[in-house]
Simulated scan of single mutants.
Amino acid sequence: MAATVREVAQLAGVSPSTVSRVFTAPDQVQEATRKRVTDAAQQLGYRPDPAARTLRSGRTESLGLVVPDIANPFFPPIVKAMQARARNHGYTLLVADCDEREADELETIDAIVKKVDGLMLWASTLSDGRLRELAAEIPLVLVNRHVEGIPELRISLTPGISQAAEHLRALGHTSCVFVNCSRPEHLRGKSIRETFDAQGLSVVELGPYDPRFETGLHAATLAVANGATAILAHNDLVAIGVLHQLARSGVDVPGQISVIGVDDTLLAAMSIPALTTIRISPQAVATQAADLIVETINGSAPGRPAEVGSRLIPRASTGPAPHRA
């Protein structure tokens, strides 16, 4: 049978209320007394009841994270790193998937909002007005979504895209395709067109599509028909679909066409050929997002968005344009 508060109190030589304070408000208990209580609790195998702690403190000691697609290999390393960072702050992490649908996102938020002290939404599909209402109900952080007045973590692809454009230009490419899976408000397509134009690279944009493996299968055929010698995909998952379809069609990569992804997931290094990609550090994203939501909960969030950068990781899927081979 589990040990009780009274048993811990008797062993430690303190009152039951002191034991409760050690686990709910440790700063209110002297260090020597606190140590006696925690030693006694460890000896007896006592564990405080999380539900009771929540009722007393009004805090759940949990953070919520809603991502678009947990099946995307980009997210698991971020979730793992964010769990570790949350634990450092004294929180557990609850993760949910909304499958990039507004109705599912609303349902998911309703299900977890009362179970967490703060909420992080990744590329939210909700309207600005709904997000402002939500931010008035609970500490809220947006990742890759801007709404004035709500703390935000931006993932900047600008450095990585610039390096990708320079890389392709140096290899002699002039005709490129961008497989776009972004919603209009993200403006990823516009950023890529402007950056590639500055390097003298023409870009045909395909989409927007869903950011899935099947999209790459479809887009690869269209890119070849457009006469492109390079393809930049929305993410690694789409890029792997492109590689798969090109191989099935007998198109040599990178001999006839070069392919670049975004994210630098495990898939990128394992693909054949290994995928050139724009790296976004999961550890940096996890650290910044977890720190930002804790600061928001504590009322100390900075007034400007936090930002994580990116960089190109060249691998075997890019090579000289065919006319320079």
Rank of each mutant, 00 (worst) to 15 (best):
residue 18 T to Y: 02
residue 19 V to T: 03
residue 19 V to W: 03
residue 19 V to H: 02
residue 19 V to Y: 03
residue 20 S to V: 00
residue 20 S to T: 00
residue 23 F to P: 00
residue 25 A to E: 01
residue 26 P to G: 00
residue 28 Q to K: 03
residue 30 Q to Y: 11
residue 30 Q to W: 13
residue 30 Q to E: 12
residue 31 E to K: 01
residue 31 E to D: 10
residue 32 A to S: 07
residue 33 T to F: 00
residue 33 T to R: 01
residue 33 T to M: 02
residue 34 R to Q: 03
residue 34 R to S: 04
residue 34 R to E: 02
residue 35 K to S: 04
residue 36 R to K: 12
residue 37 V to Y: 08
residue 37 V to H: 05
residue 40 A to V: 05
residue 41 A to H: 06
residue 41 A to P: 14
residue 41 A to W: 09
residue 42 Q to M: 12
residue 42 Q to A: 13
residue 42 Q to E: 15
residue 44 L to G: 14
residue 44 L to N: 14
residue 44 L to E: 09
residue 44 L to K: 11
residue 47 R to W: 09
residue 47 R to M: 13
residue 47 R to T: 15
residue 47 R to H: 14
residue 47 R to P: 13
residue 49 D to L: 04
residue 49 D to S: 14
residue 50 P to R: 01
residue 50 P to C: 00
residue 51 A to I: 08
residue 52 A to Y: 14
residue 52 A to E: 11
residue 53 R to P: 00
residue 53 R to W: 00
residue 53 R to H: 03
residue 54 T to Q: 13
residue 54 T to P: 05
residue 55 L to V: 00
residue 55 L to G: 02
residue 56 R to Y: 05
residue 56 R to P: 00
residue 56 R to V: 01
residue 57 S to N: 03
residue 57 S to P: 00
residue 58 G to I: 00
residue 59 R to K: 09
residue 60 T to V: 02
residue 60 T to H: 08
residue 61 E to N: 12
residue 62 S to K: 11
residue 63 L to F: 10
residue 65 L to C: 04
residue 65 L to R: 10
residue 65 L to T: 09
residue 65 L to E: 12
residue 66 V to L: 13
residue 67 V to A: 12
residue 67 V to C: 10
residue 68 P to Q: 06
residue 71 A to S: 11
residue 72 N to L: 04
residue 73 P to E: 11
residue 73 P to R: 06
residue 74 F to M: 09
residue 76 P to M: 06
residue 77 P to E: 06
residue 79 V to F: 10
residue 79 V to D: 12
residue 80 K to W: 07
residue 81 A to W: 07
residue 81 A to R: 05
residue 84 A to G: 12
residue 84 A to F: 09
residue 85 R to L: 05
residue 85 R to A: 15
residue 85 R to T: 06
residue 86 A to M: 02
residue 86 A to K: 04
residue 88 N to S: 10
residue 88 N to Q: 12
residue 89 H to G: 06
residue 92 T to E: 07
residue 92 T to V: 11
residue 92 T to H: 08
residue 92 T to N: 10
residue 92 T to R: 05
residue 93 L to T: 07
residue 93 L to K: 05
residue 94 L to P: 09
residue 95 V to A: 14
residue 98 C to E: 08
residue 98 C to I: 11
residue 99 D to W: 09
residue 101 R to Y: 07
residue 101 R to D: 13
residue 102 E to N: 14
residue 102 E to Y: 12
residue 102 E to L: 14
residue 103 A to K: 09
residue 103 A to F: 05
residue 105 E to C: 03
residue 105 E to L: 09
residue 105 E to A: 06
residue 106 L to Q: 13
residue 106 L to E: 13
residue 107 E to C: 09
residue 108 T to Q: 04
residue 109 I to M: 04
residue 111 A to V: 10
residue 112 I to T: 08
residue 113 V to N: 05
residue 113 V to F: 06
residue 114 K to A: 15
residue 114 K to T: 14
residue 115 K to Q: 15
residue 118 G to H: 08
residue 118 G to R: 10
residue 118 G to S: 06
residue 120 M to C: 15
residue 120 M to T: 15
residue 120 M to R: 11
residue 121 L to M: 12
residue 122 W to G: 08
residue 122 W to S: 10
residue 123 A to M: 15
residue 123 A to N: 14
residue 124 S to P: 02
residue 124 S to H: 07
residue 124 S to K: 10
residue 124 S to C: 05
residue 125 T to H: 10
residue 125 T to R: 15
residue 125 T to A: 15
residue 126 L to I: 11
residue 127 S to E: 04
residue 127 S to P: 07
residue 127 S to T: 13
residue 130 R to K: 12
residue 130 R to F: 14
residue 130 R to M: 14
